[in-house]
Simulated assay, not measured.
Amino acid sequence: MIIDISRTLNQNTPTWPGDTPFSYELSWSKAETGSVNVGQFTTSCHTATHIDAPYHFNDSGLTVDQLPLDLYVGDVLVVDVSTKGRISPDELKLVDLSNVRRVILKTSAWKDPSYFPTEIPILEPSLGQFFRENGVELIGVDLPSVDPLESKTLDAHHAFEANNIHILEGLNLEEVEAGEYRLTALPLKVEGADGSPVRAILETK
């Protein structure tokens, strides 16, 4: 079974305050061209379900087109941390991360998908080292960011990069239970980009 864990992109999709909202419109209609509809869309790279490239927060970091694609396809463990306001290694110490390369944290904190959240759980930067020591290379969240919304230092982003852990944000996990799945969440091949929307799915094993 395939579970779509992407958020819908439309004119009502919430985005970071002040960032470029998503829009789609027809440039030419079939009536005008006589053969096809041709549309265009405009959006921030960090709207809805997306990956962060390290270049997003590090001028010397990898851009989207430089990322290893195998990170975004493969087995993943979904961990339910929906009762936690702060997520640290202590909350995950009982989770078996043996042979786990990808982890998705289900926080259930983004209650209304039509509005940008005003508060989200805190992911402690110490998770970076913890995940690296356990062999994790990709962290996904059902939040717009792995850092507090008001953060300018982006400590968790930098801690994950320092430990070679890549970031997938804005997942929709409402219909997903904790457990093992196969993830596909490929970014667009946009040269020089700091992030990219993805169509993220989970397949039951």
Rank of each mutant, 00 (worst) to 15 (best):
I5L: 05
L9I: 06
P14Q: 09
D19K: 11
F22K: 03
F22Y: 15
L26D: 00
S27I: 15
W28T: 01
A31E: 13
T33Q: 09
G34S: 10
Q40F: 15
Q40V: 14
S44M: 10
H46R: 09
T47W: 10
A48K: 03
A48H: 01
D52T: 12
P54A: 09
G61I: 13
V64G: 04
V64R: 04
Q66Y: 05
L67M: 14
P68K: 08
V76M: 03
K84P: 13
D90R: 12
L92Y: 00
L97M: 12
S98K: 10
V103L: 13
L105H: 12
A109I: 05
W110R: 07
K111A: 14
F116M: 02
L123Y: 09
E124C: 08
E133Y: 03
G135A: 04
V136E: 10
L138E: 02
V141R: 10
L143S: 01
P144Y: 03
S151N: 03
K152Q: 04
T153Y: 02
T153G: 02
H157Q: 03
H158R: 09
H158F: 07
E161W: 15
L168T: 08
E169G: 02
V176P: 00
E177M: 10
L183K: 00
A185P: 03
L188S: 13
K189F: 04
E191K: 14
G192Q: 02
D194E: 13
S196F: 07
V198A: 05
R199W: 09
R199N: 06
A200Q: 08
T204V: 15
K205Y: 08
